[in-house]
Design a protein around this nucleic acid. Structure first.
Lengths: 130, 130, 130, 130
DNA sequence: GTGGTCTAGACCACA
DNA sequence: GTGGTCTAGACCACG
């Protein structure tokens, strides 16, 4: 797992979990990796993972069962989808529009760029699957 | 001037300057606010402004004239445009595509959302002009 | 650690690190003193050390591991050697030739002076070893 | 006239004057350019030139005659030669020896490098003379 | 007035 | 513990 700078690591770990929930890899009720497992997997300090899990617990996206581990909460998928969608509309979208204006990228041009990026992405995924 | 958290203040100041260059408010050769002026204007410590200016100087977007201040470099607009466009394609675009996939937003839907955001933005700008 | 005026302190700290790398006291992979340790050792403010370390990191001579410290990069010794050699040929050497001309010092005379300086240096080193 | 960073501008102006004295372009008694002339010639603020002249006056290398200007002092050439030679032996030479050790440059290699630099220098001078 | 450097001391993210 | 960022305030070189 790789991390990018402007976002904190624990936020990125939380994102990663939300991603798995959104993609239905981790359905409601599923046990997610323990703090230690996740720390090893992400090559990160357990403290950092704990922060990520705690924040998701506060959002009621995962729940903790003492001695058993963390589990995906009921309805978590819809909850995450709403949250992320709100975030997207309120933060990412305005930033995108502003960047488009500044760089003179038209909606059509953006559509083309997205199409290209999707293909690149698919190629990449095909490659990694092998 | 307000700052948001995930990005450092000095990066946001640097962005602000690039923005003014892109919008042609500060053409090549123009003197930009002195470190102290910008510090007051942005309600920030002069050191923080210095850091922003220094990074832009290393990118040759602004140049320093001893004892006189910083000036927008020749060709800076094109330089910034290229830089920002590369950044957009390599960083923002992949993130956007990924988010769209995760949230099930189709290109058409995105186009609609952008259209709406642009209008909201215009309304906001009209309002602030009054 | 003592500093001389015409060069900034942070450059001198950076030089000091390069020197240790060149002398193989700090081989590739070795952890260098933490910012705070170096600050105490050099009787300097941590910010100043940070500046030195950051510049060396940009040159890929040292690398940072989050929360652990700075480490000497692989191949750093060769990298430093090349850099310093280029600096010497492009900056120090022309200055030396010019000074020799101005002061009327012939290559032979210079060779003698160097020989003397080396001996003085050895005496000094012997003395400090005791 | 171009200036390099690690040395202050007024020191470099003072050096420039010493250079002309050493090369016998400005013999004892000769009037040197006025502060204003020198400031224009060096594209520098008159204050900076004044500092350079003042420091040389303190060293009794130039003398000021009120209302007439600055003049090269008697014996100035020998005085400068001694000064610069001492500087060279005490500062430049030890630095040179240290750099040679660090970079593994032998006295013979240095001699070759100097020879090459001299030729390059001559070529350059020939070129600029045309 | 300008920027460049440095200090002292603080808070945060992360190990 | 580590480095990264930020503030407050100082001195210097230069215009």
């Amino acid at each position: 797992m790789e991390f990018k700078k402007p976002r904190t690591i624990y936020d990125q770990i939380a994102d990663h979990i939300c991603e798995n929930i959104l993609l239905d890899r981790w359905p409601a009720g599923e046990r997610i990796p323990s703090v230690r497992e996740m720390a090893i997997q992400a090559e990160v300090n357990p403290n950092t993972v704990t922060r990520a899990y705690t924040s998701l617990q506060e959002l009621e996206i995962i729940v903790n069962q003492r001695g058993k581990g963390y589990f995906v909460a009921a309805d978590s998928r819809e909850k995450v989808r709403k949250m992320k969608r709100t975030e997207f509309v309120q933060e990412d979208l305005p930033a995108l529009v502003k960047t488009m204006e500044l760089l003179g990228i038209s909606p059509d041009e953006l559509a083309d760029m997205i199409e290209m990026a999707r293909e690149t992405r698919k190629d990449f995924e095909d490659e990694t699957e092998r």
